[in-house]
Design a protein around this nucleic acid. Structure first.
Length: 563
DNA sequence: GTAGGGTTAG
C-alpha cells in the first residue's frame, strides 16, 4: 500500500495523461482486492472517479464482498451502478454480485440478478450460470438450482460440484450421490472439491461403507486430500461411528487449522470420549491454533456428556477471555451440563438471564432437566414457554406427557393428548436403523414388515422386562455391563431399542448383563455398546445416528455393487 | 479482474 500510494501521488502530480483512468482503475483494483490492500482507500479513490468504468465497479463490488463480515454493500454498489447508467454490468459484475448474494442469502436480490442476466444477454456465460446455480443452492432453493443446472449446455466440473454440494448440504443425499455417479458417466473426473461434497453426503447419511469406498476412490484416483477434504473425512468417520479412523486421518495431517481441530474434538465429544476431546483441546491451544465458537461447542458438549461442571465453567470463562461471545448452542450445552449435574436451579436461572431469547431447544433441554431433577412445578412454566414457541412440534407434547406419566398424573397425560389433537399436531413415525454384518436394517414405528420381526420383538420384550425388574423405565436408562476382562459401564438411551433389534437379529438372548445406573449421560455411548456386542459375537454391528439413506443401502445394495 | 469445498448445543 505504501508503494502504491507513492505511485498514486505521482499520477496526481503529473499533468493529465491518457493512461490516467486506466492506471487509476488498476490502483483501485489493487486496493480493493489485494490481501495487503485497503478497501477504505479504494472507496475514497472510487468516489473521485466521475464516471467509473465497469472494471472499477467490478473491483469495488468484489472487494466489498470479500470482507470478513459480509454485508449488503456489494448489492448497493451494483444498484448504484445501474442507476448511474454509465457503465453496464458484464459477466464479471453478475458473477461477483451473485457471490455476494449467496454469502448473505439475499434471495430476492439474487433472483433479480437472474432476470438481469437475461436482460443484459449474459445468461450464456458459464460464470454467471454457475454463479446463479450456486446462489440458489446456498439459499437452499434446490429446485431452482437444478433448473439452472439442467439449462447449462456444457456442464463443467465447477457446475457439477456446485450442484452436488448443494444437495449434500441440505441432506438430499441420494440426489447428491446420484449426480456424482452421473457426472462420472459423462466423463467428468471429480477433484478434491467435488469429493468434499460427496464425503459430506456420506456423513449426513451415516453411510459408512459408502464413505469408506469414497475414501478409497480418492486414494485410487490420486485426488489430493487437502485440508478441507481431510476435515470432511474426519467428520464423516466420526458421524458414521468410526472414531478411530477419524483419528487416523487427523493424526496424519501435517497442517491443521481451527476447523480440523474442531471437527476432531466434536467427533470425540459425540462419541463420549470426553477425556480425549479435552486433551486434544489442550494440544490445540499449545499448537497456537485459535479455537472458535464451534470448538467450544465441542468442548462444552463433551463436559456435559461427562458431567464435568467445574471444567465446563472453566471453558466458559476461557471462551469469554478469547472474546468469543456465547451463542445459543453454547447456552444449550451449559443448560444441559447443569441439568445433568443436578444443578437445575442454576440452569433455570441461566436460561432466564440469557442475553439472547432462548429458543425451543433450550426450553426442551430444561424440560428434560425438570424431569430428571424431579422439578415438577418448574416444568409447568418451562412447558408453557416451549409450547408457545413451538406449538406444532409433536416431540414437545410427547415429552410433557411422559413427564406427567412419570409422576402418575394421568389426567394431565390425557389432557396433553387432547391438546395435541386439538392443535392438529401430527406425529411423524420414528425411524431407526442398525447395520449388522454390512446389512442395513431400518425400522419405522408400527412397521412389522421385517422378516425377523418376531425374534426382534421377543428380544425387545426380554430386555424391557429386565430393565423394568431393576425398577427403571426402559429405553431411557439402561446400562450394559461388559463381563469381559475389563469391566466397563456404558450408558444407553433411546437407542437401546436398536440393540434389542441387534440381539433379535442375532437370534439369541442378550448375553450381556443389564444393569441400570442413574444419571445416564450420553446416547453416543451406543457406539461403545455396539463395540462390546460386536466383540462378544464376533460380528460387525454399527449403530447409526443420522440415517436418512433409504434407496441406496437398504439391505440389498452394497456400495460396490452399486457403483 | 470471474464460478464449486470442511467443524455447530438438546
Amino acid at each position: 500500500m505504501r508503494t502504491l500510494r507513492q505511485i498514486h501521488a505521482h499520477f496526481l502530480k503529473s499533468p493529465a495523461n491518457s493512461f490516467c483512468f486506466y492506471a487509476l482503475s488498476k490502483i483501485l483494483a489493487f486496493c480493493a482486492l489485494s490481501p495487503s490492500g485497503d478497501l477504505a482507500y479504494a472507496r475514497r479513490l472510487f468516489a473521485q472517479i466521475p464516471n467509473p468504468n465497469v472494471f472499477s465497479w467490478n473491483s469495488l463490488i468484489r472487494g466489498s464482498s470479500q470482507l470478513p463480515n459480509a454485508s449488503k454493500e456489494p448489492i448497493f454498489l451494483y444498484k448504484q451502478m445501474l442507476q448511474k447508467g454509465f457503465a453496464f454490468p458484464n459477466s464479471f459484475t453478475l458473477a461477483f454480485v451473485l457471490k455476494a448474494c449467496s454469502l448473505i442469502l439475499a434471495f430476492f436480490e439474487g433472483r433479480q440478478i437472474h432476470c438481469h442476466a437475461f436482460k443484459h444477454g449474459l445468461y450464456s456465460s458459464p460464470f454467471v450460470q454457475t454463479g446463479l446455480l450456486n446462489f440458489y443452492a446456498k439459499c437452499e432453493e434446490l429446485v431452482a438450482a437444478r433448473l439452472v443446472f439442467d439449462e447449462i449446455p456444457d456442464k463443467n466440473l465447477i457446475a457439477w460440484s456446485a450442484m452436488i454440494g448443494g444437495y449434500a448440504r441440505v441432506g438430499l443425499v441420494n440426489e447428491a450421490l446420484e449426480l456424482f455417479r452421473e457426472m462420472q458417466g459423462v466423463g467428468i473426473s471429480p477433484d478434491e472439491v467435488t469429493m468434499v461434497s460427496v464425503i459430506q453426503a456420506c456423513a449426513k447419511a451415516g453411510a459408512l461403507d459408502l464413505g469408506k469406498w469414497v475414501h478409497a476412490f480418492i486414494d485410487r484416483n490420486g485426488i489430493k486430500a487437502d485440508l478441507e477434504l481431510k476435515t470432511a473425512l474426519i467428520d464423516m468417520y466420526a458421524k458414521c461411528g468410526e472414531i478411530d479412523r477419524a483419528r487416523k486421518v487427523f493424526d496424519g495431517m501435517d497442517v491443521r487449522d481451527t476447523k480440523a481441530w474442531s471437527s476432531m474434538i466434536v467427533g470425540l465429544a459425540i462419541h463420549g470420549l470426553v477425556k480425549n476431546a479435552l486433551e486434544l483441546f489442550s494440544r490445540m491451544l499449545e499448537s497456537k491454533v485459535r479455537p472458535n465458537h464451534v470448538t467450544f461447542i465441542g468442548v462444552l458438549s463433551a463436559c456435559a456428556h461427562s458431567g464435568l461442571v467445574s471444567d465446563g465453567r472453566r471453558f466458559w470463562s476461557i471462551m469469554h477471555e478469547l472474546g468469543i461471545e456465547p451463542m445459543m448452542e453454547h447456552y444449550g450445552c451449559m443448560v444441559d451440563l447443569l441439568c445433568r449435574s443436578g444443578l437445575f436451579e442454576e440452569a433455570y436461572s441461566l436460561v432466564n438471564t440469557m442475553p439472547i431469547m432462548p429458543n425451543s431447544i433450550i426450553w426442551r433441554t430444561l424440560l428434560v432437566g425438570c424431569k430428571s431433577n424431579g422439578n415438577l412445578d418448574k416444568a409447568e412454566i418451562v412447558a408453557k414457554q416451549l409450547l408457545e414457541l413451538e406449538p406444532l412440534n409433536a416431540e414437545n407434547y410427547v415429552l410433557l406427557s411422559n413427564l406427567y406419566a412419570s409422576s402418575s398424573q394421568w389426567e394431565k397425560v390425557s389432557y396433553m393428548r387432547k391438546k395435541m389433537k386439538d392443535n392438529g399436531v401430527k406425529v411423524v413415525p420414528g425411524c431407526s436403523s442398525i447395520e449388522v454384518d454390512g446389512f442395513l436394517h431400518e425400522f419405522v414405528v408400527g412397521d412389522e414388515s421385517h422378516p425377523e420381526i418376531k425374534e426382534i420383538r421377543k428380544a425387545l420384550r426380554e430386555i424391557t422386562e429386565r430393565v423394568r425388574l431393576v425398577g427403571h423405565e426402559p429405553w431411557t436408562s439402561a446400562v450394559l455391563h461388559d463381563v469381559g476382562e475389563e469391566e466397563k459401564e456404558v450408558a444407553l438411551c433411546e437407542h437401546s431399542e436398536r440393540l434389542a433389534i441387534a440381539f433379535g437379529l442375532l437370534k439369541t438372548k442378550a448375553p450381556v448383563p443389564i444393569r441400570v445406573v442413574k444419571n445416564l449421560r450420553v446416547c453416543s455411548d451406543c457406539h461403545e455398546v455396539t463395540k462390546i456386542i460386536s466383540k462378544a459375537y464376533d460380528r460387525e454391528i454399527i449403530v447409526r445416528d443420522r440415517v436418512r439413506f433409504h434407496q441406496f443401502v437398504n439391505g440389498a445394495c452394497s456400495c460396490n455393487d452399486f457403483w
